[in-house]
């Protein structure tokens, strides 16, 4: 397969284009996705190729357009709904939680809602409290939804193709700070199955389980620790629902020490779920130290850049957590 250097946002756009060229039922709707190209430029150029019928610019009506996506999906389309900021999911939640997630079950296994809700989460852009949250744990809690959090351009493309082809509502969390990140991505269509984690770096001493932008921070931390002779394994679950429990358990069973890191607020964050999966499994017997869990502070994301930065885990926090876990518990 030929590869090309693509940014995260180009890879997402590429996935959308490839599916739209081959499947007439796939279309996009969202606010300012037309000539403006989307709040973060992801849909730039798509209206020129596919026209305004299939790149459907909408009024500012998150509840209405989410419901329209549900109704279109229920009657045979495969809508891709873009919400400009993942914080705005609060306005669309009735349609996502009460309708999309439950329709198939409530109807006794009849009907399906094959839609993707793409939306960027995360802090780091100075957008403050209502445009910087990471609310993925909310969605992961709801039976009937799938939740995806790609951390790289390659993953984003392959996961989005799978999400569009999936017959269920999929919440696809992008990250604002990743949009410009570049790597070689195959030009053709390929799929990364939902529910398959990836080891981003192999190691033997400690497993760092990280999601979204934290994968990159974990890799940086791993590099620093490598200089000190500590071999960190970095595992990215890529999808929270379904969660690749087997890969997590295997890695932890190998290393015996775990640091879990996400940007979302630590309290009741998805890291608690991952920690529980580990201690409820046979990996418990392999644990040599208590699990370290890093997450955002329990504060709204502040505007001041230094405050904002300190509201979420940084590379140094991961380095320290890895060292703590090596100092605690049994001898290595």
């Amino acid at each position: 397969m030929n590869t090309k250097d693509m940014t995260y946002s180009e890879a997402i756009r590429d996935a959308i284009s490839l599916k739209m060229r081959t499947d007439e039922d796939v279309f996009m709707l969202g606010e300012d996705i037309g000539v403006y190209g989307g709040a973060f430029g992801v849909s730039r150029g798509l209206i020129e190729e596919f026209g305004p019928e299939r790149i459907r610019n909408t009024p500012i009506s998150e509840s209405g357009i989410a419901g329209a996506a549900v109704g279109a999906a229920l009657t045979g389309m495969r809508p891709i709904l873009e919400l400009q900021f993942s914080d705005f999911i609060t306005i669309a939640t009735d349609q996502i939680i009460n309708q999309a997630a439950k329709i198939r079950y409530m109807y006794g296994g009849k009907g399906k809602v094959p839609m993707v809700l793409r939306t960027p989460g995360g802090s780091g852009t100075g957008a403050a409290a209502q445009h910087s949250q990471s609310l993925e744990a909310w969605m992961a809690h709801i039976p009937g939804l799938k939740v995806v959090q790609p951390s790289s351009a390659y993953d984003a493309k392959g996961l989005l193709i799978s999400a569009i082809e999936d017959d269920n509502p999929v919440i696809f969390y992008e990250h604002k700070l990743l949009y410009g990140m570049k790597e070689p991505v195959p030009e053709d269509l390929y799929r990364i199955p939902l529910g398959k984690a990836v080891i981003k770096k192999e190691g033997t001493d400690v497993t760092v389980i990280a999601t979204s932008v934290m994968v990159h921070k974990a890799l940086e931390a791993a590099k620093l620790l490598e200089a000190e002779g500590i071999e960190v394994e970095v595992l990215d679950p890529r999808t929270l629902v379904p969660l690749d429990e087997a890969s997590i358990i295997a890695s932890v069973s190998k290393t015996g020490r775990v640091v879990i890191v996400h940007e979302a607020v630590k309290r009741a964050g998805f890291g608690a779920e991952i920690a529980s999966v580990i201690v409820e499994s046979d990996a418990f017997d392999f644990l040599d130290a208590p699990i370290e869990r890093l997450g955002g502070k329990a504060v709204p994301i502040p505007y001041n850049p230094e405050l904002e930065k300190h509201a979420v885990p940084q590379v140094s926090d991961i380095v320290e957590a890895v060292k703590r876990t090596l100092q605690r518990g049994k001898e290595v």
Binding site: I65, G71, M77, Q95, N98
Partner: peptide, 19 residues
């Protein structure tokens, strides 16, 4: 959900129009 079906009807009508 009171009012929950109204946007869904719009989506179903959108399918009719698009296809």
């Amino acid at each position: 959900i009171v009012g929950g079906g109204i946007p869904i009807a719009v989506g179903a009508a959108l399918t009719s129009k698009m296809k």
